[in-house]
Design a protein around this nucleic acid. Structure first.
Lengths: 211, 211
DNA sequence: TGTACATCAGTGAACGCGCGTTCACTGATGTAC
DNA sequence: TGTACATCAGTGAACGCGCGTTCACTGATGTAC
């Protein structure tokens, strides 16, 4: 315990957290490439130069945010994949979990949606790498349920990517439904559409061997 | 012909085009909210103040770019929907058309992908409105082919949104395949995946009445 | 056709402002004895 | 336990720079007669 956890380390970690939280909040209304270093430190209440004790620059902070935002999503996916119910139950549980996740961490989802194709390369790459890992996990989880003769690995992968992309798509739709209007009906419409789309994909999956 | 098309109007239009083209090119490497007005006018070779003769601000220019980028995509969709072949032929034609479109107008696709969830609200709204229109058209085109008893309007709409989102997703994947590596194999992999996903959706569509 | 005036796209200088980064510093925390 | 020194998170002042916007202007194009 020579250089971890003392009062000093704890204070430093606290400031780092404050910087990330402030950045995430500011990023609800703008994109990372227009976010200012001074804007972040001002929100936290530290001197601009203090920033450099924690991050090399804003894109470095962005990469740290990617890890945070996607790890919370990752837990959610793990929980869904662990459930071993039937098709419709799984769909229901998935859409509910995504809706709940978006309600709880709207800033996380907004950040990912915005920066997935945003103007900062290292951040884009970090997001792409993580989503790729998600697809791996979904593929691994689905593999034992699919008849091996009609589902070669690349087809399983194709299905997994469709699921991951659909999840991101749905999360983003929930976000817009919650933000743009005050109508709760929008959220229900998004949920209904997402469930139907997942059902349609399920149907296609069950008849994949026909093709 | 009192105030249209004279030498003066033509010159003004030419400058406007140059501003939009320069902006679109600069936006391949950054997002709209970090693009500078002086950056654009410098690229064109006019004084910064000249910008205001054409656009109120950069978000105004962004909205103009949305119209341009999505109208080219719109034509592409129209061509695909007009084709009246079988499922597999249509899938083949769709993926080919998207790949070709991305090859021809990479900056258009990048702009849409980036700003769809970007930091500039008017631009986001313009993109959302246009994509909504696309879904309307796809729904209208598909409607006569679907048995009315098992396809209520909201289910048709759900399917149309899935197709539009998948198209944007695929276009973005092509873009990354073309940009990130020099491998042409990536592009073929994206095409293969997209075709299979569309086939899977087709299968689900044919068995929708079972659900 | 020629002339006198109006329009208006583009100029260039000026402005105040907030930015990212640097630097020597301070003082609380950590370490060695 | 107490003392002397080392570490290092955060400070605050300073810097040069490029930004968006304004303004009176210029001169080519358009219009009226």
């Amino acid at each position: 315990m020579s250089h971890t956890s003392g009062v000093r380390q704890a204070q430093k970690e606290k400031t780092r957290r404050a910087l990330m939280d402030a950045a995430l909040r500011l990023l609800e209304d703008q994109s990372l490439s227009s976010l200012g270093l001074r804007e972040v430190t001002r929100a936290v209440g530290v001197a601009p130069a203090a920033f450099y004790r924690h991050f090399r620059d804003l894109s470095d902070l962005g990469v740290a945010l990617v890890e945070e935002c996607l790890s919370s999503l990752h837990h959610m996916i793990g929980a869904i994949l662990a459930g071993q119910d039937g098709d419709e139950e799984r769909i229901e549980a998935t859409v509910d979990a995504v809706a709940e996740h978006v309600r709880r961490y709207p800033a996380h989802i907004r950040f990912i949606a915005r920066e997935r194709h945003g103007g900062v390369r290292p951040v884009r790459q970090a997001i792409a790498a993580e989503l790729d890992r998600f697809a791996d996990e979904v593929a691994t989880a689905f593999c034992p349920q699919l008849p091996a003769e009609s589902w070669p690995p690349e087809d399983v992968r194709m299905l997994a990517e469709l699921y991951v992309d659909h999840m991101v798509m749905t999360a983003t739709a929930f976000l817009e439904a919650q933000a743009d209007h005050t109508e709760a009906a929008d959220e229900r419409r998004v949920a209904a559409t997402a469930r139907k789309q997942l059902l349609l994909i399920s149907l296609g999956r069950h008849h994949w061997h026909d093709a």
